[in-house]
């Protein structure tokens, strides 16, 4: 996963100002366009992450947090981990 993000392990981001909260659904394309350095198809598929990529929101499986509908709050830590081999 680091390889896709220019070898960076942790990225702190300031999301653009917007009315209401940012959801993961909006965050993913933003990351793809702003942070991803190569091969977006290895990160996203359709409007969600590629199968095999785990998402943790503050170390909790995103499946327990509403997945794409989760509203991001100040200071949230969102982790992407790939389970895929050779990705």
């Amino acid at each position: 996963m680091e390889l896709l993000f220019d070898q960076q392990h942790t990225v702190k981001v300031q999301l653009p100002a917007k009315e209401g909260n940012f959801s993961i659904r909006e965050l993913l394309p933003w990351i793809r366009d702003k942070l991803l350095r190569e091969r977006p198809e290895l990160f996203m598929q359709g409007d969600t992450v590629r199968p095999g990529v785990l998402v943790l929101i503050n170390d909790v499986d995103w499946e327990l947090e509403g997945e794409l509908e989760y509203q991001i709050a100040e200071g949230d830590r969102i982790t992407f981990i790939s389970t895929l081999h050779g990705g």
């Binding site: 785990l54 790939s82 389970t83």
Partner: peptide
């Protein structure tokens, strides 16, 4: 998935 989470 379990292996990856275990390491994390």
């Amino acid at each position: 998935k379990e292996a990856v989470l275990y390491v994390y």
